[in-house]
Computed example of a mutant assay.
Amino acid sequence: MYAQNYARTYRANSILTASPGQLVLLLFDAALNSLAIARQACDHAPADPRQYEIVNAQLTKAQKIIAELQGTLNLEAGGDFARTMHQLYDYYDRRLVEANLRKQSAPIAEVERLLGEVRNAWSEMLRQQETSVPSPALHHVA
C-alpha cells in the first residue's frame, strides 16, 4: 500500500517538474505502455474473451494520448515536418481503430514499433539539447 502511494507521488512530482520536452517523452512512454498492455491482452483474448475489455480500454487510452501529442504540434512553426507528423498520428489512430474493431494484435504491434521509433528520436533530441548550448523551451513539433 505504501509503495503504491510513493510511486504515485513520484510520478506526480516527475510530471510537475518536467520540462515541456520531457512531458512529451512521458506521453510517448504512456502511449507505448498502453499499447504493450493492449497487444498482450489481444494475444491472450482468444483463450479469455474478458481480455477484449482490456484491449479496448488500453487502445482508447493510447488513442487519447496520441491525439494529445498531435494537438501539441505547431503546424506553423514546424512546417512540413509537423504536417508529416500530424499525418503519421492520423495513421496511428486509424490502425488502432482497425485493431480494436478486428481484435488483431498486428496493427497494435506496428503502431507500437513506429511510435517507439519516434519516441527514441525525441529522446535523443532531448539528450543532445541537454549537452549543447541552452535553448528556449522546447515546443513539440515532432
Rank of each mutant, 00 (worst) to 15 (best):
N74H: 07
S135N: 03
N74D: 14
P107Q: 10
R83A: 06
V55W: 02
Q58M: 15
F28I: 04
A67Y: 01
A30C: 07
L138I: 09
Q87M: 08
R50Q: 15
D90Y: 06
I37H: 09
I65Y: 03
F28R: 07
T131K: 11
D48E: 14
E130H: 09
R127S: 04
A38R: 08
N13F: 08
A142C: 03
L26T: 07
Q58A: 14
K103Q: 14
A142D: 02
P49M: 02
S123E: 04
I108T: 06
R83W: 05
S14M: 06
L27M: 15
A109V: 02
R95N: 09
H86K: 12
H139Y: 06
L73R: 08
S135A: 09
L25V: 02
Y2K: 14
H139G: 08
D90R: 07
V111P: 03
E112D: 15
E117I: 07
F81V: 12
R102N: 12
M125D: 10
N74T: 01
G78H: 00
D90K: 13
Y10P: 00
S132D: 11
I108G: 08
R94T: 15
A142G: 09
T72Y: 06
R102V: 13
I54S: 12
T60R: 13
Y89H: 10
P136H: 04
A18C: 03
R95V: 04
T60L: 08
A142L: 00
L27R: 12
H86A: 11
W122I: 11
G71R: 05
R113Q: 11
L88D: 08
H140L: 05
S34M: 05
D43M: 04
Q63H: 04
E76A: 04
Q40A: 08
G78D: 02
A67P: 11
A99P: 10
E124K: 09
G116P: 03
Y91A: 09
M125R: 09
A30Q: 08
A62L: 03
E112S: 12
D93L: 02
G78R: 00
L69I: 12
R50K: 12
E76V: 04
A121E: 10
N33Y: 00
Y91S: 12
M125G: 09
